[in-house]
């Protein structure tokens, strides 16, 4: 195949629609670097918007410093959220529309102010946050067995599939997000625990790094947008009938089932 940005975006969108996982793009297109991958991601989102979806926010990935060091990067990767990914409360994860979904708990921000780098710090990033919520993200790589390189996953919009946000909204002002804990359960059994410090030391730190990285690509995070700040724990696979829950210290709980 003659690879270019349009072709790569179309192939990934088709894989999503057909629920057909594939080998990494970089196997067939070794020239796919990180910069090109972000242009594929942008094209993929443009196609979703052309089809009627609306952009609602940003998600951050690879937010653990240890993982970043292993991958040779210094800030989280970013992806774009549209309303096509929204899972409404009390609606099961639609397994029939997904390939091999996994769930991870997240701290979610709703932005009160526009955030544009460079020069954003954790403190100024937090000042731009209007409210903090509990969230669950459902990821679903379009690559076989979630096997990919950094450019592959960026092009695939960071494995975005669905997300839901808890109804409780707290101001970040009096929250200690580094110590805000999350208990992840599968069918009632605790499978993992973590605190907000698992995300880049503090979710606002991840937000600041992402805002600065976005600025380098000419983009900003807009007022009113959602930010999924990054998985607090490893993602767990879900199967039909499973109930996954995330219970937080102050942010309340979110539960989802799969059907």
């Amino acid at each position: 195949m003659n690879w270019d940005i349009d072709t790569a975006a179309a192939v990934l969108l088709e894989a999503e629609r057909q629920r057909q996982d594939r080998g990494p793009l970089t196997d067939e297109w070794p020239e796919l670097d990180l910069g090109t991958a972000y242009r594929v991601q942008k094209r993929l989102i443009e196609k979703k918007v052309e089809a009627g979806e609306k952009v609602v926010g940003v998600k951050l990935g690879l937010t653990s410093r240890a993982k970043q060091e292993r991958m040779g990067i210094t800030s989280p990767l970013t992806a774009v959220l549209t309303d096509g990914y929204v899972l409404e409360a009390d609606v099961p994860i639609p397994l029939a529309e997904l390939i091999h979904p996994r769930v991870e708990p997240e701290i979610v921000f709703v932005m009160g102010k526009r955030l544009e780098g460079p020069g954003v710090t954790a403190a100024t990033a937090l000042d731009a946050v209007e409210s903090v919520h509990a969230g669950l993200e459902i990821i679903d790589s379009r690559y076989v067995d979630f096997k990919f390189t950094l450019p592959d996953v960026v092009a695939d919009n960071a494995s975005s599939a669905r997300f839901l946000v808890g109804g409780k909204a707290l101001s970040p002002k009096n929250l200690d997000l580094a110590l805000e804990a999350c208990v992840l359960t599968a069918n009632g059994t605790v499978v993992a625990t973590a605190t907000g410090a698992a995300v880049q030391g503090h979710p606002a730190e991840a937000l600041a790094l992402a805002a600065n990285a976005l600025a380098a690509r000419g983009e900003a995070i807009e007022a009113g947008q959602l930010v999924l700040t990054g998985g607090l724990t490893d993602a767990v696979f879900v199967h039909a009938g499973d109930q996954i829950g995330a219970e937080f210290t102050s942010l309340g709980s979110v539960f989802v089932t799969a059907a």
């Binding site: 804990a181 625990t193 605190t195």
Partner: peptide, 22 residues
Amino acid sequence: LRTCGVVLRRNGRIVQTGAGGA
């Protein structure tokens, strides 16, 4: 105690986080 969080640092760097529910 279930949602009581902890951050573990070794020589200043975060190495683990968790909660009582574990």
